[in-house]
Amino acid sequence: MAQVKMTVNGKTASGEVEGRTLLAQFLRDDQGLTGTHVGCDTSQCGACVVHVNGEAVKSCTMLAVEANGATVDTIEGQANADGSLNVIQQAFQDHHGLQCGFCTPGMVMSASALLKENPKPTEAEVRHYLDGNICRCTGYHNIVKAIMAASGQDVSAIAAE
């Protein structure tokens, strides 16, 4: 067992983990942060995406010990300080970018990483960036639209309801 300590959503999180404990397991089982989901075991679905030191990573494909000392941000830390939805979360609700909600935390975390890197992505850039995030419900139309809207672009020309 190894002792790990990291900053998760601005708070200190520490615990004892096995070598094989994944960061996703540490967050879910030790820290009770169950917003981070696990949807596959081959590092493809992206439901587990969190930010480690500001970069999007798949927390099911990283050992907890590798995040020792790191700053980790999860879906639970994304809302505004007053508890209201942040710009990306609000755009997902406004544009119906989620249905069952299971892939949603990873989608929001990936979207946030994308917009940091590319503040005004094109539709093709958004789609390409989401290669590591699988959604089975929405057919992606409204996710792509939500992310473009969150970037401040006018999405009224994109077909909707």
Binding site: G46, V57, K58, S110, A113, Y129, D131, N133
Partner: peptide, 9 residues
């Protein structure tokens, strides 16, 4: 290669 999160690791 892969996807953005994979490329970060």
């Amino acid at each position: 290669i892969g996807d953005p999160a994979v490329r970060n690791r």
